[in-house]
Amino acid sequence: MKAIVIGATGATGKHLTEQLLNHPAFSQVTIFVRKPLDISHAKLTVKVIDFDAPEVWAQDVQGDVLFSCLGTTLKQAGSKENQYKIDHTYQYHFAKIAKENGIQHYVLISSEMANADAFTFYAQLKGKLDNDVLALNFPKISIFRPPLLVRENTDRFAEKMAEKFLMFANQLGLFQSARPLPTQKLADAMINAVIQNQTGIVNKQAIWELAK
């Protein structure tokens, strides 16, 4: 299979790209990034693009499966408008191009809180993207709604505090269903979903099963 990854420099995307390159089921991995990377591999193609200029790179979106791992925080984005552009607009437009180019399987990292009718901006944003990409009618689509993620070297303070609390509670036998998920495990699950044809909304319980 030929895989495409956007968000390949993020916490999950880095692990996913590395695992795809080492997986025998994938013969080619193309990543679309905003800045040049010092990385090389016989199976890897790096496309440096401007996500605001799809007319330049749309024809290069070719393959069998698209993994969409883009994501940012409000603090990093600087405004809700910028966060919406990165977390929704860029991912939706890329998915639309992929569908038009005949890509068969779309895999998206969403959020456990995703709900287009939610009160909070982030949950609305994720829920709207889920609904919009589902409406594209890919032959196969897998939308991952993971629990709290354990990211290496994260600077997300609230996330770190929640992670510490949940891990402590888990040791006491509490909140087992909400145990934090390492990004490496999420990458494992995404690849296994493609191999095993796991489609639809993939919730945290199914993610843990796929990650084994």
Rank of each mutant, 00 (worst) to 15 (best):
H15W: 03
L16H: 02
L16F: 04
L16Y: 03
T17P: 09
T17H: 09
T17A: 12
E18S: 12
Q19S: 02
Q19A: 03
Q19R: 05
Q19M: 13
L20R: 01
L20W: 00
L21K: 01
L21S: 08
L21R: 01
L21E: 01
N22G: 13
N22M: 07
N22W: 00
H23Y: 02
H23N: 14
H23R: 03
P24F: 00
A25K: 07
A25R: 04
A25M: 03
A25Y: 05
F26P: 09
F26C: 05
F26E: 02
F26Q: 01
F26G: 08
S27Q: 01
Q28A: 14
Q28G: 13
Q28H: 15
V29N: 03
V29Q: 05
V29H: 06
V29K: 04
T30P: 09
T30R: 08
T30K: 12
T30N: 08
I31A: 03
I31D: 06
I31W: 00
I31N: 06
I31M: 06
F32E: 03
F32K: 05
F32W: 03
F32Q: 05
V33S: 06
V33F: 02
V33N: 01
V33I: 12
V33P: 08
V33K: 00
R34E: 04
R34F: 02
R34G: 14
R34S: 15
K35Y: 02
K35Q: 14
K35H: 15
K35N: 13
P36I: 00
P36V: 00
L37K: 15
D38F: 07
I39F: 10
I39H: 05
I39W: 12
S40W: 00
H41E: 05
H41V: 10
A42R: 04
A42Q: 11
A42N: 12
A42T: 10
K43W: 01
K43H: 09
L44H: 03
L44M: 13
L44D: 11
L44I: 09
T45Y: 03
T45Q: 12
V46Q: 15
V46A: 12
V46R: 08
K47I: 04
K47S: 13
K47A: 14
K47N: 10
V48T: 15
V48W: 01
I49K: 02
I49L: 07
I49C: 09
I49E: 08
I49P: 09
D50R: 07
F51G: 14
F51Q: 10
D52T: 13
A53V: 13
A53F: 02
P54I: 00
P54A: 00
E55F: 06
E55W: 02
E55C: 10
E55V: 13
E55P: 12
E55M: 11
V56E: 12
V56N: 14
V56H: 14
W57E: 08
A58K: 15
A58T: 09
A58M: 10
Q59Y: 00
D60C: 11
D60H: 10
D60R: 08
Q62I: 10
Q62C: 07
Q62K: 11
G63Y: 04
G63L: 11
D64Q: 01
D64F: 01
D64V: 02
V65S: 11
V65M: 10
V65A: 14
V65C: 13
L66D: 06
F67P: 13
S68A: 15
C69A: 15
C69S: 10
C69K: 02
C69V: 05
L70S: 07
L70I: 10
L70F: 06
L70K: 04
G71I: 08
G71V: 06
T72V: 14
T72N: 12
